[in-house]
Design a protein around this nucleic acid. Structure first.
Lengths: 210, 210
DNA sequence: ACCCTTAGGAAACAGTGTTACACCATGGTT
DNA sequence: AACCATGGTGTAACACTGTTTCCTAAGGGT
C-alpha cells in the first residue's frame, strides 16, 4: 500500500501546508493592519503577536524574524502599487500614462506607511532580498509598457521605454517623497506634481527637440 | 565691588558657556563621524558617549536626548548641501543651474548617511522642529535664486522662481533617492539624472510651449 | 570652615529583536 | 494499546536600545 500511504502523507502534508498558509496570511494581515494603523515605528514583534493572539515564537517559525515580515510588507506595498497603476483604464496612450502617474501618487498617499517601508527604509534592520527587488520592478515595467505604447503611436519620439519609464518614476517618486516628508506644506503639491508629470512627458514628445 | 563681582561672574559664565560650546561641538563631531563611518543604525547614545569618552548623561544635558542630536545632524546635512550648491561658480545662468543640480547629486552621494537622516527619517524617533525645517529650506532658496536669474535673463519664461525651484528639487531628489536606495543598479544613474535635469529645465525654457 | 549648587557616572527601567529551553500534542511505529 | 518521535508553542532569558534616577564628588560663595 505504498501508494495509499504516499497519498495519505501527501494529503497530510498538503493540509499542513494549507494550515501554515492560513496562519501566515493571518499574521501578515495583522502586521499590515498594524502598519497602516500605527505606522512603521509601532510595528513590533510583540505587538503583532499580541494582535494575533499568540507568542512571538510563531512569528519566528513563520517568517524567520522581523526582516521576513518586513520583506512581505514590502512585496505587498509594491503589489498594491502595481494594482493601482494597472487598473488605470486604457485610452489614448498619453492620457493613460499621466493617469498612471496620478495613480502612483494616489496610491502612495493612501498607503503612506507602506510607502515608507518601500522607499524610506522605515524598518531599521531590513534590506530587501534580490528576489523581492526583482518583484518590486513590476510597476516600473507596467509604466514602461505604457511608455512603449506612446512611442509606438508616435506620441513619443523613439527611445528606450524602460529608460524613459525610470525617468518618469524618479520624477514621480521625488515629488511624492517630498510631499510625504512634509516639506513646504502640501498646498501646491498637486500643481507641482502636475508640472513635473507634464515636464517629463513633454521631454519625450515627438514634436520636441529633446 | 559689585561691578568687579559682576564682571567676574560674567567672565565665569562666559567661560562656562565657551566650555559648554566646546563640548557641544566635540560631541557633535563624534556623532557626525560615527554617522558617516557606521551609518544611522549604529548611531547609538552609548556609542557616541564611548567615542566621546564620557557617559551618556553628558549627551542628555547637552542635547536633551537623541532627537536633539538628530536635529543637529539634520542641520549639518542641510548646511553641507547648501555649501555644495552655493560654491558652484557663477557663469551663464542655465549652466549654473544645471551645475547646482549636479552639486546636489554629488553632495548626496558623498554624504549619503546625512542624506538618509535628512530625507529617509533614518533616526526612528525624530521629526525636525519647525525651526530646523525653516533652516532646511536654504538650499531651496539658493536654487530659486538661480532660477530667478534664468528668468531675468530671458532663458526661462516668466514664472514663480520658488515654485520652479521646488519642481527641480523634487526631480533631483527623486533620482538621487532611487539611486541611493539601490533600485536598478547605478549603471545608468548619471544618464538618468542628466535626462531629468534636462527635461525639467526644458519645461521652463522661454522657447518652449510649456 | 561650611554649605550648596551643579556636573557627571553608575545603574536601573521600560522597551526592542532574538534565542534557548521546556512543554505538549499530534502522528507513526511496535 | 502502549510507546516514541517530531514539530509547533509559550515562557523566560539575553543583549541591546533610549531614558531617568540617584548618588557622589568637586568647586565656588558666604
Amino acid at each position: 500500500m505504498a501508494t495509499e500511504d504516499d497519498a495519505a502523507a501527501a494529503s497530510m502534508a498538503a493540509a499542513r501546508a494549507r494550515a501554515h498558509q492560513v496562519r501566515r496570511t493571518a499574521a501578515l494581515d495583522a502586521a499590515g493592519n498594524l502598519l497602516e494603523r500605527a505606522g512603521p515605528g509601532a510595528l513590533t514583534m510583540r505587538r503583532i503577536a499580541t494582535e494575533l493572539g499568540c507568542s512571538t515564537t510563531v512569528l519566528y517559525t513563520i517568517f524567520g524574524g522581523k526582516a521576513g515580515i518586513a520583506e512581505e510588507l514590502w512585496r505587498e506595498g509594491f503589489e498594491r502599487l502595481h494594482r493601482a497603476m494597472d487598473h488605470v483604464p486604457a485610452g489614448d496612450p498619453l492620457s493613460r500614462l499621466t493617469a498612471m502617474g496620478w495613480a502612483y501618487r494616489d496610491n502612495a498617499l493612501a498607503n503612506s506607511a507602506y510607502y515608507a517601508v518601500m522607499f524610506q527604509r522605515a524598518i531599521p534592520g531590513f534590506t530587501p532580498s534580490e528576489e523581492a527587488y526583482a518583484a518590486s520592478l513590476r510597476p516600473l515595467h507596467a509604466l514602461a509598457d505604457a511608455v512603449a505604447r506612446c512611442i509606438d503611436t508616435g506620441v513619443f519620439a523613439p527611445a528606450d521605454p524602460l529608460a524613459a519609464a525610470r525617468v518618469l518614476w524618479a520624477a514621480a517618486h521625488g515629488a511624492v517623497s517630498l510631499e510625504l516628508a512634509g516639506f513646504e506644506g502640501r498646498i501646491d503639491a498637486e500643481e507641482r506634481y502636475a508640472t513635473l508629470l507634464g515636464a517629463t512627458a513633454a521631454w519625450f514628445m515627438a514634436d520636441q527637440a529633446g
